[in-house]
Amino acid sequence: MALFLQRLVDGLAEGSIYALLALGLVIIYRGTGHLNFAQGEMALFSTYTVYQFGEWGVPIGIAVLLGMCVGFVLGAATEVVLVRPISKKSPFAVFIVTIGMFQLLNWLDGAIWGGQQLPSTAMGSKQVKFPSLFPSNPDDYFTVFGAAITWRSFCILALVLVIGAVLYLLFNYTKLGLAMRAVASNSESAKLVGIRTSTVLMFSWGIAAAIGALGGVVFAGLTTNVNQSLMFQVFIYASAAATLGGFDSPGGAVVGGLSIGVIQNLAAGYADEWVGQEMKVGVAFLVILAVLLLRPSGLFGTSKVERV
């Protein structure tokens, strides 16, 4: 029981990170109908800037906020400069452009911060550990029903719930949120009531990338191995989460993310021999396959997924 609880909480914490990235995917998908393949790499680039701010001695909290701003600008600029003009041509062109961004950002990370794992003494890092928002020492835990729950896991879970609540309020009780929902629902009518859809889409991409940046920083704080391929798998987990929850449902993204995290951790924990660390990605793969085959619109999505 204690072990189960521990795995559950750890799974929820990991799932929180997937949920953050999945939220970004969903926000962009709702607005423009595009799947942003560069979502993970945008998050990683922002995460690296947080490391850079840390190097310059900026306190972690402020560094993370600055990193989120970098993410926002990156996302908004991508929408305005690349996606908007190209989306008039074809969805294929948008796909290629997001793949191009994926590749470009990944290369930039390496070009700016070197190909190694960060922080690295070879690169002259002043920080010994990747900046973490939350207490991450081995003895930072508390015990519930005999289960050792790390403060870190607890804080991450709390963080995603707070972000979820903030987004809920944004979507439902602000003018920008109303405009975002209107554009997602019917873009032509949104224009006819005087909503500047282009501005809304820019904000959507910006917000998505900023949330992704937060997810990236939190994930970087969780693992010891921060390198250029950090986000490849996280992106797939986030996509699996969005697929499971439904690509047009923000609530679904959170539920999906948490579920994927828990499924993975329980699978890796109880079927270690079969799943282990290597095949965790296989679990995500199976989830995507199963959902698309059985219920393409996901658990909470409306059935907009294009079927042949």
């Binding site: 799947l35 296989g282 995500a284 995507i288 079927r307």
Partner: peptide
């Protein structure tokens, strides 16, 4: 699954396949 879905979803499935292969 490719017969039932298209576009970016297929890209997603195949991307996952690409990630699973080395892990497998």
């Amino acid at each position: 699954p490719a017969l039932r879905i298209k576009g970016v979803y297929l890209a997603l499935v195949t991307l996952a396949l690409g990630l699973v292969f080395p892990a497998f």
